[in-house]
C-alpha cells in the first residue's frame, strides 16, 4: 500500500469517527447542531479525499470529468434549493425524498460495477452477493420512499390502500426476487439483475401503499435504515471502508431509531409494517 493510499484510508477513518461522534452528539438537544456539523465535516473530508483518489489514479476520461462535475452541480443544487425552500411542515417528506435518491444511487453504483465486471473479468461471488442485495433492497427503498413522500405530500392518498391478494402478491414477488438474486450470484446474469431491480421497485410500492399516512414517519425511518444497509453493501461491492462503516452505522442506528419512534407513537412495529391499520393522512402528527 502506497503512502497515498494509506493517507486516504486515514482520512476515511477520520470521517468515520466524525460520523460516530456526530451521531452521538445529535442524541442530546444541547449538542445536536454541533453533532450535525461535525458529521458534515467528516463527509466533506471523505468526498475531498475521493476526489484526490480520482485525480491520483487518472483513469477518468474527459467526458467522465464533465459528467461528474455536471452531476455534482445538478444534484448539489437540487438538494440545497429544496432543503432551503421547503416549509417546516413538509420536512419529513423531503427527508424521505433524499432517502429515496440515496437508495437509488447505491443501487446504480452496484449495477454499474456489475455490468463492468460481467463484461470483462467475471463477477466474484462476494461481489455478486453484495450486488444482488444492494440492487434489490436499493430499488425497494427508492420506490418505497417515493411512495412515502407522495403520501405525506398528498400526491398519493394517505389512507391505507389495501386490495385483495396483496399479501400473496408480495410473497410471490419476494420469492421471485430471491430466486433472481440466487441466479445473479451463481451465473453473472445481467437480465436477471435487471429483473431483480424491477421486482424491487414494485415491492417498494406494494409494501408502502397499504400503510396509513400517520405511520409514515416510522416507515421513513425504517426505509432510512434500509438505505444505510444498502450503502454498506455498495461498500462491499467497491471494497470501500468508509461506505461500509457509514452504511452499517446508519443501518443499525436507524433500526434503533425506528423502534424508538414506534414506541413514542405507541404503535407496535409489526402492525405498522404489515399495514392496513393506520388511520388517514393526519400529516400534522409528523411535524413534532
Amino acid at each position: 500500500m502506497s503512502d497515498f493510499d494509506a493517507g486516504v484510508r486515514l482520512v476515511y477513518l477520520a470521517a468515520a469517527v466524525c460520523f460516530v461522534v456526530g451521531l452521538h452528539l445529535m442524541g442530546s438537544p444541547t449538542s445536536a447542531r454541533r453533532g450535525n456539523l461535525l458529521s458534515a465535516a467528516g463527509m466533506a473530508a471523505a468526498v475531498l479525499a475521493t476526489f484526490a483518489v480520482v485525480a491520483h489514479e487518472g483513469t477518468i476520461t474527459n467526458t467522465g470529468t464533465i459528467v461528474l462535475v455536471l452531476a455534482l452541480l445538478v444534484g448539489g443544487a437540487a438538494g440545497l434549493v429544496t432543503a432551503r425552500r421547503v416549509q417546516m411542515t413538509a420536512m419529513p417528506q423531503l427527508v424521505s425524498l433524499f432517502n429515496a435518491v440515496g437508495g437509488g444511487a447505491a443501487a446504480l453504483v452496484a449495477l454499474d460495477d456489475f455490468l463492468r465486471l460481467s463484461d470483462g473479468p467475471g463477477v466474484p461471488t462476494r461481489t455478486g452477493v453484495a450486488t444482488a442485495l444492494d440492487v434489490g433492497i436499493g430499488a425497494l427503498t427508492f420506490a418505497g420512499s417515493l411512495v412515502a413522500t407522495g403520501k405525506l405530500q398528498g400526491v398519493v392518498t394517505g389512507r391505507p390502500v389495501v386490495f385483495p391478494g396483496a399479501r400473496a402478491l408480495n410473497a410471490a414477488l419476494l420469492l421471485v426476487a430471491v430466486a433472481a438474486g440466487v441466479v445473479v450470484v451463481a451465473d453473472d446474469n445481467v437480465p436477471l439483475l435487471l429483473l431483480l431491480l424491477a421486482v424491487g421497485l414494485v415491492l417498494g410500492v406494494t409494501l408502502v401503499l397499504p400503510i396509513g399516512g400517520a405511520d409514515m414517519p416510522v416507515v421513513i425511518s425504517l426505509l432510512n435504515a434500509c438505505t444505510g444497509t444498502v450503502v454498506a453493501m455498495a461498500g462491499f461491492v467497491l471494497e470501500n471502508p468508509v461506505l461500509i462503516i457509514a452504511g452499517a452505522l446508519v443501518g443499525a442506528s436507524g433500526a434503533i431509531l425506528t423502534v424508538l419512534m414506534a414506541q413514542a407513537m405507541n404503535r407496535p412495529i409489526r402492525n405498522i409494517v404489515l399495514g392496513g391499520f393506520g388511520g388517514g393522512g393526519s400529516v400534522e402528527v409528523v411535524a413534532s
Binding site: 454499474d112 421513513i220 438505505t227 452504511g247
Partner: peptide, 24 residues
C-alpha cells in the same frame, strides 16, 4: 427523533464516494 432520522439520512449520502469512484 425527526432531526436524528434526517441526520442519519445525510450520513448515508456517503454513497457519493462510491458514485464518484464509479464515474472515474
Amino acid at each position: 427523533h425527526t432531526p436524528l432520522m434526517s441526520g442519519t439520512n445525510a450520513i448515508h449520502g456517503v454513497v457519493l464516494v462510491g458514485a464518484v469512484l464509479i464515474a472515474s
